[in-house]
């Protein structure tokens, strides 16, 4: 069966799987020519532009439809541009509240129900609650497998390091869930023994939005860094376990879970913790000596929060390196000296 494509980490994958589809995240990784400028403003998120480049070039599998999460202005423009590029595609939108405040769970549950009905229409059969529960369990198994691989990578025990983990993150949103879990378990089977961790560099925490290229992590490791944890929407934030409670309505449970997952910069965290607080806490918890922010150019939600995040990190004694990228390998090459100098500054041997 053809797949629905999607472009945001907040897309409720178990719902797509419950409809019998393989969900394919359209990552901004492509050799397609850069033509999105014909549909979108020059100063727009390069993630969205590269996804549109893929749509324009037909660099996609056979699609049953497209799920757009209009989480930010750029994602809304993605919906418009996709329609212009491929007018015959079916497009569903999945609205996501910006905050987890009162009423958000009700609203999100409504969004999930609408998406379920659209997906059911695409597949030609209703989606039973039990199918959603089964998909949620498979999704949780995927999340657990990724968490296990993440722990191995942090300990220096995953051959290929954090770059290999990035390949696992990509597999988790492009393969069928069962195939992805099998692939991740095979990777875990290759892990080095506990007393034979690979060479490690200066421990770093990486946060930001879209950084899907394994080469980016290979570069950081070549420069003497060791990524011990991340908060990226193409990394650890991409798949967060649902843990539906027994007897809980599956859509209600998914709504609750989506609202409580680690927030990205377009989301206002529930409670009194700001994004800056959360990032400082994560960086401290993983033992990082420095923090790298990798932000797609023109991503205002993140760039606007960098000063507060920097202030929090400075207070915690954690230096910050801010890199801006455009989802291409050429932008990575220009970062080498900055990353090397940052690692040297943190005490990596000069």
């Amino acid at each position: 069966m053809p797949e629905p494509a999607l472009g945001c980490a907040y897309t409720p994958l178990p719902l797509v799987a419950a409809a019998g589809f393989r969900a394919v995240r359209v990552l901004p990784v492509t050799e397609a020519p850069e033509r999105a400028g014909s549909l979108l403003h020059d100063n727009l998120c390069p993630h969205v532009k590269r996804v549109v480049d893929r749509a324009l070039a037909g660099d996609l599998p056979d699609l049953a439809g497209v799920v757009i999460v209009p989480a930010c202005d750029a994602m809304r423009r993605l919906g418009d541009a996709w329609y212009a590029a491929r007018p015959s595609d079916r497009i569903a939108t999945f609205d996501l509240p910006a905050s987890g405040g009162e009423g958000a769970a009700d609203r999100l549950e409504g969004s999930l129900a609408r998406l379920r009905d659209v997906l059911a229409g695409w597949s030609g059969r209703p989606i039973a609650d039990e199918a959603i529960r089964d998909a949620a369990r498979a999704y949780d198994a995927l999340a657990d497998a990724l968490a296990g691989l993440g722990a191995l990578a942090a300990a220096g025990r995953l051959p290929g390091g954090r770059a290999r983990l990035q390949e696992a993150f990509a597999a988790s949103v492009t393969l069928r869930q069962a195939e992805a879990v099998a692939a991740l378990r095979a990777m875990a089977d290759d892990a080095l023994p506990g007393d034979a961790g690979g060479p490690r560099g200066v421990p770093l925490f990486v946060f930001g939005n879209v950084l899907p290229l394994p080469e980016a992590f290979r570069l950081i490791e070549d420069c003497g860094g060791h990524v011990v944890d991340d908060d990226l929407c193409t990394g650890s934030r991409q798949i967060a376990p649902l843990r539906l409670a027994d007897g809980e309505d599956p859509l209600r449970g998914m709504a609750r879970s989506l609202l409580s997952r680690p927030p990205c910069a377009r989301t206002i965290p529930s409670g009194s913790r700001s994004i800056a607080n959360l990032i400082v806490d994560r960086a401290r918890a993983c033992g990082a000596r420095g923090v790298v922010a990798h932000v797609a150019k023109f991503c205002d939600p993140y760039l606007a929060r960098i000063p507060a995040i920097r202030k929090g990190l400075v207070s915690a004694g954690l230096p910050l390196l801010v890199l801006e990228g455009d989802c291409t390998q050429r932008s990575l090459g220009q970062q080498r000296t900055r990353i090397e100098a940052f690692v040297e500054m943190l005490g990596g041997e000069p």
């Binding site: 000296t337 090397e340 100098a341 040297e344 500054m345 041997e349 000069p350």
Partner: peptide, 21 residues
């Protein structure tokens, strides 16, 4: 910028660290 091209080097270090030193 050409630090990685120097053959026989003991190490390559960024110009940021070297200028500071």
């Amino acid at each position: 910028y050409g630090r990685e091209r120097v053959e026989g080097r003991t190490a390559a270090v960024t110009e940021i660290t070297c200028h500071a030193r």
